[in-house]
Design a binder for these strands. Structure first.
Lengths: 227, 227
DNA sequence: TGTACATCAGTGAACGCGCGTTCACTGATGTAC
DNA sequence: TGTACATCAGTGAACGCGCGTTCACTGATGTAC
């Protein structure tokens, strides 16, 4: 990867294009983004963008990968900044997850919302990117599990079998219970954020911050991990 | 509301239009629906549809209201068909909720997924429609609460205040705790379904049915309502 | 330092397309007498 | 039962629009000698 002045300018323009695309998605929805609108935003002609991305689909894929990675970066940063034990780390990571989702609502919709008509995500790229953030949570929960091991944790039999296969297949040194806890926590957090993002939560609970924190505490209690 | 032969034919065509729209959304995404594609599907010319809906937006609104109502109908039917106590009723309703979402994935995306570019939902129509299904759950949980009352149930202070205001404002004879439990349950269920719908869950847990049931049981345990 | 050439960002015109909506119309069906 | 009229579903043409992508091009920047 050459790092000439040219290359850096190219990369800078690529970033500008993505920034314009994100801005547009914010105004008009993830499905409303278009090459022509982006070029208008940047004061370029539409064909100019083809020097930077092969097609609209390629651009969308880049946006998706960026989003997954930025989210995972935010989670890692929260984990590493937290001084406390794994339980505190878990809380911090989950709070960072929500914060990122709210501050980058469009990117979050892009990766976890409705598919864009006519666009097909290349799974070989998006799946590993998506797994990064998830792996961070699993890792922390695994650590917390080791610190306070005893918990019944009834995993449905069929689910446990699958979890074990996933663990083996990924070569991932983690217990089925930690993985199960992670998924269980994820669905809660994800539901809360999704509903909040679309404005369904605030009218009912008011203080969504506090509600979210209570969800996290309930999650920890259910896992048998408590402060 | 006249019920002449003419009126019935008109209504039948309206249903056909909505059915075609749903089919299209399934093929091309909620954001991809168009008057012209629907008319093609039905073997009509595009202007003909304007005899039935004033605009594309009006049609989308009708689809959204239909979806909210169909979901609420499914939940009501599950509640009324269940012979057991309120806890069993709650389980049945939640299972019906997921089943409906999976069987009508597009409608579910339409009401709980990304907004459609250029479309603005008229809140005065959609909010009451959305509330119907939610009220069913709240009602059942309120009943269950009365049957097994003692539970600490720490609701964050600010959230409790807001819940009380909502209850008063709606003139809804329900305890803050029942409402809080409903929202807490909802975010879990919603997260599970959303992730399942977009294919994020099945690869990890395999047997999503069993996973979902386990989530419901965890939810009941957390509420202090157990079989 | 100066010249010849290659690279490549960006332009402008054009393509073929699908879109929502309007308009004046046709022709069948239903209603009033 | 028959005629005159109103209603209204559906048509066909047209509008102005934005879209992704292609192509041949210009002109500035960077490289080799």
């Amino acid at each position: 990867m050459p790092d000439t002045r040219q290359e850096r300018l190219r990369e800078a323009t690529r970033q500008e294009i993505k920034a314009a695309a994100r801005k547009l998605m914010g105004e008009v929805g993830t499905a409303g983004v278009s090459i022509r609108a982006i070029s208008r935003e940047l004061g370029l002609t539409p064909p100019a963008l083809y020097h930077y991305y092969d097609s609209l689909d390629a651009l969308i894929t880049a946006l998706i990968l960026d989003a997954f990675n930025a989210l995972a970066d935010a989670m890692e940063a929260a984990r590493d900044a937290e001084q406390g034990d794994s339980i505190h780390k878990l809380m911090s990571v989950m709070i960072a997850y929500r914060r990122w989702a709210l501050e980058h609502a469009v990117d979050f919709q892009l990766i976890y919302g409705n598919p864009i008509p006519g666009y097909n995500a290349p799974a070989d790229l998006t799946v590993p990117a998506a797994a990064r953030g998830f792996a961070i949570v699993v890792g922390i929960i695994e650590q917390a599990r080791r610190a306070s091991p005893s918990v019944s944790g009834a995993i449905p039999r069929t689910v446990k079998t699958q979890l074990e296969q996933v663990i083996q297949h990924e070569g991932y040194p983690v217990s089925p219970l930690a993985l199960y806890n992670s998924v269980s926590g994820w669905v809660r957090i994800h539901g809360t954020i999704m509903l909040e993002l679309y404005g369904h939560l605030e009218p009912v609970v008011g203080d969504v911050d506090a509600f979210y924190r209570a969800q996290l505490e309930g999650m920890l209690r259910e896992m048998g991990l408590t402060d």
